[in-house]
Computed example of a mutant assay.
Amino acid sequence: MRIEKKATVISTSVATLLVIMKMTVGIFSGSIAVLASAIDSLLDLTVSLFNYFALHNAEKDPDDNFNYGRSKIEPLAAVIEGTVISLSALFILYEALVKIAHPREMEHIDISIGVMVVSIIITSFLVLFLNRVAKKTGNMVIKADALHYKTDIISNGAVLAALGLVSMSGEQLFDPILGVCIGIYMIYSAMPIIKEGILMLLDAALPEEEIETIKTILQSDKAVTNFHHLRTRESGSHVFISVHLVYNVSISLYDAHLVADKLELKIKEHFKEKKAHVLMHMDPYDDSEINDAEDLY
Rank of each mutant, 00 (worst) to 15 (best):
N131K: 15
I120F: 00
T151D: 06
D152A: 14
R104S: 08
S169G: 04
E105D: 08
F125C: 07
L147M: 14
I154R: 00
G164M: 07
G138E: 08
T151Q: 07
M116W: 07
N139V: 15
L163H: 04
Y149V: 15
I122Q: 04
K136P: 09
H102C: 04
E105V: 04
F125V: 04
N131H: 12
M106L: 15
S112C: 05
I120E: 00
I109W: 05
G164W: 02
G157V: 14
S169V: 01
R104G: 08
T123M: 11
S155D: 09
Y149D: 12
K136A: 08
L165K: 01
I121L: 12
I121D: 09
V115P: 10
A161E: 03
S124G: 10
H108S: 13
K99W: 08
G157I: 13
K143H: 10
H108L: 14
M116P: 01
K135G: 05
V117W: 02
L160H: 03
D152K: 11
M106D: 06
G164K: 09
L97R: 05
I113E: 03
S119V: 13
Y149S: 14
I122H: 00
M116I: 13
L128E: 14
I122Y: 06
I113D: 05
S124K: 11
I121F: 14
N156P: 01
S167N: 07
T123R: 12
H108N: 13
I121E: 09
I111H: 01
K150R: 15
N131R: 14
H108I: 03
V159T: 15
G164I: 06
N139E: 12
A144R: 12
K143C: 10
